[in-house]
Design a protein around this nucleic acid. Structure first.
Lengths: 197, 197
DNA sequence: CAAAAAAATTAACAAAAGATAATTAACGCC
DNA sequence: GGCGTTAATTATCTTTTGTTAATTTTTTTG
């Protein structure tokens, strides 16, 4: 940790910050490694952890009483992962966050990070930038539910995130798109039979 | 503007800030009044306006080639309204923002506001708080599309925002929920006939 | 490599939603 | 307060999705 490679990596990711800023953050951050299948945040958890994904892929899902699960969110390299239930609503997480691949996170306790973020103008503005980007992604997703049909949502996902589509089982993609795995399978068939004409 | 009533209003809304902070913001803010039906942000607009709604209700919608419109967002008293296309993506707004009622906004140019927000620790942290809250709302909405059926989404809307449901025509609520007005009408009928048993 | 487990597809049927058009109800405006 | 416009409902028909279960394919693992 904190070697030259590590530091230059963060310099590239957190543009506009200097070494001192990055040290301030890294001081309260630690590396967390998860194997594929490991649960990162269990249902009911209350700790306010914020993870930056350096490698790997994490899925947040809801578990129904009948055992079905519904995928709410996928996050991967370069993205943040946190339970918004614990961080924003200050309540136990209703969702389970699980690594779908071997995953490496930089993790901080959000409550410890806040005073540091809020007392350094550059870190504050970086924080706001990240929040704006996350808001934009979330709004894009809402947009896709309002403007597009399930089939169009799937085509958009394949077009814009082919890499993710290949790394994640279809059944997780289906519920992420708001449909059932069976329905996604039919959509895929429809697309491929039309594509042939 | 800037009278005692105005200031005490903002003190209550922007908790944790002092008079000086509020003056800093109000210096670059101005009041904008819209009549019901007025367009606030036209399609293709590039200006980076951020509005805080003091009174009234604004609808953001997408216009299809065939003339249909799809409601993406409703915002009302106490909420912010801005074109995320212009502010986050730096591209012309694809959507139209229209007042559904007589509306009063506090408006700032986001580019002018940013340096002020970023150079004052308290304003920075207030900004981050607002962004987090907006992110939470957006994620809640994504959640409703993944976890709930159209009927359940409508019931949730009626339960959690009865006030908004009463102020907005059903056809706008329908597309906000990702369904057609005809389908919403059928859902309403289904609900009322079940409620009677 | 073969057996077991998990994922994806297919089938069959019921339920819901989309599209279009006609009808009824509600609203806005001289 | 009646007239015209807009919104909401209803009807009909088509398409899509959900549900459940069986079958095939793929992946995992001993």
């Amino acid at each position: 940790m904190l070697d030259a490679e590590e530091i230059s990596f963060y310099l590239s990711v957190f543009k506009g910050l200097d070494l001192k800023d990055i040290f301030d953050i890294l001081k309260i951050a630690h590396v967390k490694k998860l194997a594929a299948g490991d649960v990162y945040i269990e249902q009911g958890a209350t700790h306010q952890k914020l993870g930056y994904i350096r490698k790997g892929l994490i899925r947040a899902y809801h578990l129904r009483e009948n055992g079905d699960d519904l995928t709410l969110l996928l996050q991967w390299e370069g993205k943040f992962i946190a339970s918004h239930d614990t961080i924003i609503h200050q309540r136990p997480s209703r969702f389970i966050y699980q690594a779908l691949e071997d995953t490496v996170l930089m993790e901080v306790d959000y409550n410890k990070a806040l005073p540091i973020l809020n007392n350094n103008p550059r870190l504050s503005s970086t924080q706001a930038t990240f929040l704006r980007n996350m808001l934009a992604e979330s709004m894009d997703r809402v947009e896709s539910f309002v403007l597009l049909s399930p089939e169009e949502r799937y085509l958009q996902l394949v077009r814009e995130k082919p890499n993710i589509v290949n790394r994640v089982p279809d059944k997780y993609l289906a519920t992420l798109l708001g449909i059932t795995p069976v329905s996604l399978s039919r959509i895929r068939k429809r697309i491929s039979s039309q594509g042939r004409r």
